[in-house]
């Protein structure tokens, strides 16, 4: 199989391309020297600097506040929307509105919201970012929950209605328990997307209350500093752990069901 040997070159090249820059960041974060480019010796000094950086700490707190708030709002609104679209509507237009925030370029949503906030004279702050993140968060929760809904047995809901339960009781007693895994997955997705989101936050945040990505952006724009290497390594560690744990959990639930 000479052909497949040759194919392995771009295969390995792809992984090298994806991981080489990340590996360099991680290695350089343990550099004892001041240069972000040449490695002098092992040290944790940049992690110490990072811990003392108030701007990053405040940015992290702001990000977590926004992400937590928009996740709660997105999860409630998105779940209701998913059930409504799947069970109570056959309208293609409503379906399209439901997925629009997920496919619209972030820049267009960002300036649209900026213009909207300005025209209703709303002051910018963490609340404006939170409301903005809920727009796309809700769409992603709705999409995930809807996928789960299509696997649910509608006859259970029909049985509940036929036995005299109203729509609200049926939702809480029958639909919601079946949807729980989808709702959890959707909430996790909304949280992750909000934590990582830059463009919309950049346009809708107050300059005095930047989220973490905005802080990183201004640091990167200002120039290369080894502190970002340390921050990047920590963020990488968190994302990698979350993805691997999520992977393990889905495999676990798959093998259980």
């Amino acid at each position: 199989m000479r052909r497949s040997r040759l194919l392995y070159v771009p295969f390995y090249a792809t992984y090298l391309f994806l991981y080489a820059p990340i590996a360099v960041l991680v290695v350089m974060s343990f550099n004892s020297g001041d240069s972000p480019y040449s490695f002098e010796g092992l040290s944790l000094k940049w992690y110490g600097e990072l811990a003392g950086n108030a701007g990053i700490r405040d940015g992290l707190v702001n990000t977590l506040v926004v992400a937590a708030g928009s996740t709660v709002l997105s999860t409630v609104l998105g779940t209701l929307l998913a059930v409504g679209l799947a069970r109570h509507s056959r309208s293609k237009v409503l379906d399209a509105i439901g997925v629009l925030p997920a496919v619209l370029p972030d820049l267009v949503l960002a300036i649209g919201l900026l213009v909207f906030y300005a025209s209703v004279k709303m002051t910018l702050g963490l609340h404006s970012v939170l409301l903005a993140h809920t727009v796309f968060g809700m769409a992603f929760v709705a999409a995930v929950v809807r996928t789960r809904l299509t696997h649910c047995d509608t006859s259970l809901e029909e049985a509940s209605r036929d036995l005299g339960a109203n729509a609200v009781t049926t939702f809480f007693r029958i639909t919601l328990p079946q949807l729980a895994p989808g709702i959890t997955a959707g909430a996790l997705l909304a949280f992750t997307l909000s934590v990582d989101e830059f463009v919309i936050a950049f346009f809708t945040a107050a300059p005095t209350e930047p989220t973490l990505p905005i802080v990183i952006y201004s640091m990167v724009r200002f120039g290369v500093t080894p502190e970002i290497n340390a921050l990047a390594t920590l963020l990488l560690a968190v994302s990698f752990t979350v993805v691997i744990v999520a992977q393990r959990m889905t495999r676990l639930t798959e093998s259980l069901s």
């Binding site: 820059p21 360099v24 990582d196 830059f198 990183i216 990167v220 970002i228 990047a232 963020l235 990488l236």
Partner: peptide, 14 residues
């Protein structure tokens, strides 16, 4: 799934 800006920054360093 890692921060977008961090990945861009990595290329600046490289």
């Amino acid at each position: 799934w890692t921060n977008f800006l961090v990945r861009i920054y990595a290329w600046i360093v490289l």
